[in-house]
Design a binder for these strands. Structure first.
Lengths: 325, 325
DNA sequence: TTGAAAGCGCTAACAG
DNA sequence: CTGTTAGCGCTTTCAA
């Protein structure tokens, strides 16, 4: 920067001012500075700036996974909305490992971020204390219904499970199964199961659970379903923890010659692109993947500007009823 | 840090040393320092450290998209391998927009990263000059066959297209189509088409191309395929730019009652989880999604340690021949 | 509107 | 092994 200043024949602090608030610099010097910048291909050093101002343009985001999941769409939307305001996303993924979260929180906080976005409400004691020691805006996303550390943007997975159950019961199904990937570690899939189970149990229906051992594994979903239906022929409908599992279930039905939905109704979760093309089209749940990103960006930016926006946003889900139920 | 030093009754530089190379500090003081750190829940300021050492533990990665794509698996693997060595990924996505790349390169370079990973060989003139002004290790990934700025880890998409063509021709197909998402902007899909086309044209076969307007859109793939086959009944095999498009094509065949592969053979790209469960199982191409991440980590770490590893790695692809062809 | 001066919190010689 | 000293490259008063 001092080189730029020298070449433009101004003081370093004028260059700094020009970079941050160009219109507070006289146009004559502004021009000279810009020329010097171009000539030297000067790139400001973000770390020096961050240190001096004790702020950074970083927003940390911690998600369980970025691989083929709904989170990636939230991330993309969030990034797009924050980028415009000059913020950078620092993404960490826990791979559904709780202890990783604490580590990531530490590592992100050490960057002095302007804000932090977490997935869900479940954090280690130590994480919570780390977070409460920092005074940056914090958002817990992709869930809803608990207190929250600061702000919350998401939807209730329990309600989601209940809505699916009610829809299935309205169609006359009574004996159901819940087919889940990562059931032990994915708290939100668990919550959906709870809501699903409770609504059904309350009317005297039954729900069986089966967990896949691998990650979202279409083939395994098929095998599990096959065993399940052979062992429990009374099962009429299956709610899957995501659309890929549901696809696996549907393809298995096709192989077994089980008519959908007459022999077996299938419900997915995610409303991924392909769900309207399956044969028959898949009933599924649309989580507010992008809306979550948009609202987080809005809350964060408002807060960083000194505003005092809502603390909790329930974006709900949309039940997409198609011919697989 | 000075607070920690004070509480532990040592000098700040001893604390700093303890944090960076714990075994160079006597165990007595080490213990005292650790206690002080815990007591104060001290978090080091990464930016101050980075500024002082004029290094950072950041590795920048620029990908076209992180949404439901193969890149996300490379990212996850890369992250896992670099994390162990203390590096953080700073991820930027261009959304297949070339001008975004330059912007991202600027913004990442301003963080003083230890390394930079780009997708493919196509960069603006300005980007190239920015990159050559910096002396950090640079890796271009997910492609192979051109010079490269520094290091290259990937595979040849042209060869991939040729291999698929040869496989199809061996099975006796002569009239083909290439169904692509993002054909205009996705250079690598284009390369696959070229390799595919050239191999087929050389033997007197024909290839038609159709591009989807949206992003990986299963439903649209079905519609396009339907029109295409009705207009050009001679078509016998379709190579899709990714597995989701191929899924859409297969589901459309099911709806139309076109037997796979008798009426129409389908080939995907990606070897995603679900491809072995479709009816019939899908012939597809497995790109080295994870291997790319592993090798990049290895090259980067070697280089950052002062080593001089290979410049170019061709990881090739694997043709997964199943019953859809 | 501009510039001089004083740090931001840490690391990196170096001397002890 | 430990402490002293001098910055890293910028931002931020504050005075001109």
């Amino acid at each position: 920067m001092s080189e730029v200043a020298q070449l433009a024949d101004v003081s370093p602090s004028t260059v700094s001012l020009y970079l941050r608030r160009p219109d507070e610099v006289s146009s004559r010097r502004a021009e000279r500075i810009q020329m010097a910048i171009d000539k030297l291909s000067y790139l400001p050093n973000t770390m020096a700036g961050g240190l001096a101002s004790s702020r950074s343009n970083i927003i940390g985001v911690i998600v369980p996974t970025i691989t083929f999941s709904f989170f990636s769409e939230t991330l993309e939307t969030l990034e797009r909305n924050l980028r415009a305001a000059g913020y950078q996303l620092l993404i960490g993924n826990t791979e559904f490992d709780a202890s990783r979260e604490e580590e990531l929180i530490r590592s992100i906080l050490s960057w002095n971020p302007s804000g932090l976005v977490l997935t869900g409400f479940s954090h280690s004691r130590k994480s919570v204390s780390l977070l409460s020691n920092s005074d940056i805006p914090i958002i817990e996303m992709w869930d809803y219904g608990q207190e929250g550390l600061d702000m919350v943007v998401g939807f209730s997975h329990r309600t989601c499970g209940r809505l699916v159950a009610e829809q299935l019961m309205r169609s006359g199904y009574q004996h159901m199964a819940f087919l889940s990937t990562n059931f032990q570690r994915d708290i939100r899939a668990n919550e959906r199961y709870q809501g699903f189970h409770d609504a059904i149990a309350a009317t005297g229906g039954s729900v069986l659970v089966r967990e896949l051992t691998g990650r979202s594994n279409t083939a395994e979903a098929g095998q599990l379903l096959c065993t399940l239906v052979n062992d429990h022929p009374e099962i009429q409908a299956v709610f899957c923890s995501n659309d890929m599992v549901a696809l696996g279930a549907m393809l298995e039905c096709q192989r077994q010659g089980w008519a959908i939905p007459e022999r077996l109704a299938i419900v997915g979760f995610g409303n991924q692109d392909f769900t309207d093309s399956t044969v028959p089209p898949m009933t599924t749940v649309e989580p507010p993947r992008q809306a979550i990103g948009e609202h987080i960006a809005r809350l964060l930016l408002d807060r960083l500007k000194g505003g005092n926006p809502e603390k909790r946003i329930d974006l709900g889900i949309k039940l997409i009823v198609r011919e697989s139920t």
